[in-house]
Design a protein around this nucleic acid. Structure first.
Lengths: 116, 116
DNA sequence: AATATAGTTGAACAACTATTCATTTGTTGT
DNA sequence: ACAACAAATGAATAGTTGTTCAACTATATT
């Protein structure tokens, strides 16, 4: 027996009955929104944009974004956890690169939406 | 004279000099991240998904999402402000519909990223 | 006119998030 | 071994965000 949170009855029962079973699993919804949450920060967008131009180390990214290495490093970790970037150690430096070929096209679609 | 926030010098000056001028205006970056912020919430993703199936009124959306009308209304306002949905009053009800043809393709790209 | 229904709104609260600061780890060069 | 540098980390703080609750507006029904 389900415990309903909604505070009202359906107005168009036919529509509700058609749409409700087509809703995705809660699990998938969380994965989707988590993905967009990662994209929903200007620092991380800048990092992705910069890495689309070139693989870069943390210090150089800090210069490009004009932020501290610490702040950049924190955000790179978020991007790494989301599997959007990958890290590779080269001597004293850690070089980051894009790890997802969808990011570019998603950014393009978002730009289309904005530019209207 | 700029006031730099970065706490380090560039390691690869050539890369930094090539990437830095290609970075977009801060204004555009904020628009981009704001857009993704709107998508970065499971309730709003659910609303967009449901509205992709059919135009619906607030009460029906509340039933489909199993949430209160108030919570749904608050989130619909966010989506309306972001111009992702539009509202139309029909008698006692307010019917919401998608107002952006990019949403679907963006969701699809995001699903591709997740499903790997 | 009075009542019921649909939706919106604002305040409040709890949960979350990004940056800063100080510290630590690991690598290079001497 | 030691100093210098690059990056990562944890704790703290300030700012933001989503839901709840109660009050309010507007439309429909009797």
């Amino acid at each position: 027996m389900e415990n309903l949170r909604s505070d009202c009855e359906a107005t168009n029962i036919d529509i509700v009955n058609r749409v409700k079973p087509r809703m995705p699993e809660m699990n998938l919804l969380y994965e989707l929104s988590d993905f967009f949450k990662v994209m929903g920060d200007s620092t991380r967008i800048q990092l992705l944009w910069a890495l689309e131009e070139s693989e870069m180390c943390v210090g150089d990214l800090a210069v490009v974004l004009d932020m501290t290495k610490s702040a950049v490093s924190h955000q790179l970790k978020v991007l790494r956890t989301a599997k959007l970037v990958k890290a590779q150690k080269k001597g004293k430096n850690v070089y980051y690169a894009l790890d997802d070929h969808h990011v570019k096209s998603i950014l393009e679609k978002a730009l289309e939406h904005i530019g209207e």
